[in-house]
Amino acid sequence: MNCWECGAPGAAMFCEGCEAVQPPDPRLDHFARLGVEPRFDQDPDALSAAHRALQRRVHPDRYASAGDRPRRFSMAQATALNDAIRVLRDPLRRAEYMLHLRGRDVGAEGEGRVQLSPAFLMEIIELREAVDELDGPDAHTERSRMAREVAARFEGMLTALGRRLDAGDDDLDAMAQLAAQLRYLRRVIDELQVDDGPGDWT
């Protein structure tokens, strides 16, 4: 893109010539926006640091007395950076985003809907019924045990999915299946954590 201010070509976040802040480049994906490798395997601290460093440069305080355009563009840059980190710092969302970049939408409805096997759905129903039925003196211990078990399975499957993504696996269907299953498992984990409140202290 050419700089809106001085017309110099190839302007990124800031123009190399006049240093004016540019509007977010719509061609950048979240990885490129944060300047990190488009991989599943990411160091969470490095991701946050990259986000923070860029965010500092477009902080509203810097543009408080700037003109209307730089103020708007810096705000848009800040929003785009936040969108990027929100997706990338969550490993499951990061994996889904990588599939999305390759043309597969895990949350698609209608035609492109990811089909889950009845066996897996049965397992999820049974897991959720087991959560509903937690009761009695051992309920708390049992809930913790289930939470650990499901979380371990979630982590294992997520790691496997990440490896396949980073290895350039072409089986998008299988990977979308995995991601969809992970969504369901996360639901169960959330469920196990939500109800894990009052019982502790009443």
Partner: peptide, 12 residues
Amino acid sequence: LVGAPACGDVMR
């Protein structure tokens, strides 16, 4: 048994 990954719903 059906599921909708979009919203995480499951129905039997």
